[in-house]
């Protein structure tokens, strides 16, 4: 059993640049079939994204992005969001 890291590592990347990189307690993403929430210790996953708000919560702070299409990957508490349309809100 791998001990989960203290926090999630999150990166939001578009073809042109890395839009966000940082730690988080929770990520809520607009998956193709509805919202998906990710906490640390999540099983490895690749999920297609629909469009909507991507929320990254750390403590009481929250970053919000709009994404359309692309996908999200979770491996070992590292969350990677790749989307051709991703903008900070």
């Amino acid at each position: 059993m791998i001990m989960p890291a203290e926090r999630l590592r999150v990166a939001v990347i578009s073809p042109e640049r890395t839009i966000y990189e940082g730690d988080a307690d929770m990520v809520v993403a607009p998956a193709w079939d509805g919202q998906v929430g990710i906490l640390r210790g999540h099983a490895p996953m690749v999920v297609l994204l629909g469009h909507g708000d991507l929320r990254i919560r750390l403590g009481s702070a929250e970053e919000q992005f709009f994404v359309a299409g692309g996908f999200l990957q979770v491996v070992d508490d590292v969350v990677t969001v790749l989307s051709e349309r991703a903008e900070a809100e």
Binding site: P15, E16, A31, W32, D33, A43, P44, M45, V46, V47, L48, G69, G70, F71, L82, E84
Partner: peptide, 25 residues
């Protein structure tokens, strides 16, 4: 061991075009 949603095939069919566009970008 991965959770793949909707499925490996569908994910690939959606992201292979991203790969082609990205190569050209």
């Amino acid at each position: 061991n991965y959770i793949l949603s909707p499925s490996a095939d569908e994910i690939l069919n959606r992201i292979l075009p991203l790969y082609v566009r990205n190569s050209i970008y």
